[in-house]
Computed example of a mutant assay.
Amino acid sequence: MKIKNVTVFGSGVLGAQIAFQTAYHGYRVTLFDIKEELLEQAKLKFEQFKQYYQQDLNAAPADLDAAVTRISFTTDLAGSVKDADLTIEAIPESIQIKKDFYKKLSPLAPAKTIFCTNSSTLLPSQFAAETGRPERFLALHFANYLWKNNVAEIMGHDGTDHEIFDQVVQFAKTIGMLTIPIYKEQPGYVMNSLLVPWLIAGLDLYRNGVADAASIDKTWMKTVGADLGPMAMADLVGMTTAYNVTKSYAELTGEEVWEKRRDFLKENFIDKNKLGISTGEGFYTYPNPAYQNADFLK
């Protein structure tokens, strides 16, 4: 089966990026969300993406305009998948929300449709049964700023058809991704198996009063020559995502330390609307955070 029509569920941070990147590479894309206002927000994001693609990729304005014309918008779940060859789900990182969603989706999609989840922490096997087509279901996980950080992790579960797995790997390549096939289910995949411990190490240093955010980042940036430290990265990723990760790990492991991390983020950031760059404050204040100052490492 040749993939032509792609449906993306969820128009949030990554959903909007996935839709735009896929359309930019020539696919017809349907973007689904539960409210019209969310789709209107996505249209505004696409205008921002045009600027980013010109700056970072030297993309031609005509090609970017053409990408937008290949995207349709809908709040009708059945209509969104009636012709779908491939779907990519980027809805909230909650096992129950995803299970409920796939139960609704399963009877609506054609038999040909491949289901992919963009989940960053959950395993495909945790909700494969709810898809109604476990052999055609797997994870396709993208990094934030995916036009630039163009990595896609592809991870099946024991019931995923090998041909479907290979087909999704090839699809990811056609939309400009560096593909990372993962051959065994792994919480956090490759990317977050490396990233999360680093972010959590920074969080624990801060949470336990060992050092302030700037000192933690300065240490990392100076010693390894990095542009960002873990605290700045947490602001970039967003505290909501960081909180959801700690919440998922607390549920998966039952370990008290993950519960303490979850509760710390909730009390000090989520409840205070300090969600990172998106709200203008996290570990740093925005715009013009301290780590961007020329003398930050002096």
Rank of each mutant, 00 (worst) to 15 (best):
E47M: 10
A23W: 02
T174K: 14
E259V: 10
W198A: 03
A109I: 09
T240K: 12
W198S: 01
P61F: 09
V257Y: 04
I97H: 07
F264R: 00
F20E: 00
Y291T: 04
R262P: 08
Q167F: 04
T75K: 13
G132Y: 13
F9V: 06
I180V: 15
A232F: 10
L252E: 10
V8C: 04
A250H: 12
E37R: 14
A250S: 14
S120T: 15
L64G: 02
P107D: 05
L39S: 01
S125Y: 05
N118I: 07
T113W: 08
H141E: 08
D204L: 12
N268G: 06
F32E: 00
L31W: 12
M177I: 06
I175W: 12
F46C: 03
V29S: 04
T87G: 05
N273T: 12
G229C: 03
A111Q: 12
Y189E: 00
E153I: 08
S248A: 14
L203W: 01
V151E: 09
N268K: 15
D65A: 15
D204Y: 04
D158F: 03
V68A: 13
M221Y: 06
E130F: 07
W258Q: 08
E281F: 08
E37C: 04
V13L: 15
K148P: 00
E185D: 06
G12A: 04
A226W: 05
N144R: 11
P110A: 07
A290P: 08
L57A: 03
S215T: 15
Q41S: 14
A78D: 02
I3H: 03
A214Q: 13
L275F: 09
I216E: 01
G225Q: 05
L178M: 08
Y243M: 01
R262E: 14
K247L: 08
F165M: 05
L203K: 02
F32V: 06
A19V: 07
N244A: 05
Y27L: 07
G156K: 10
N288R: 13
H162V: 15
G132M: 11
H162N: 11
D100H: 12
L138G: 00
Q126K: 14
W220R: 02
D212P: 11
A78H: 12
V196R: 02
Y206H: 13
Q51K: 15
T285N: 02
T160R: 11
T69R: 15
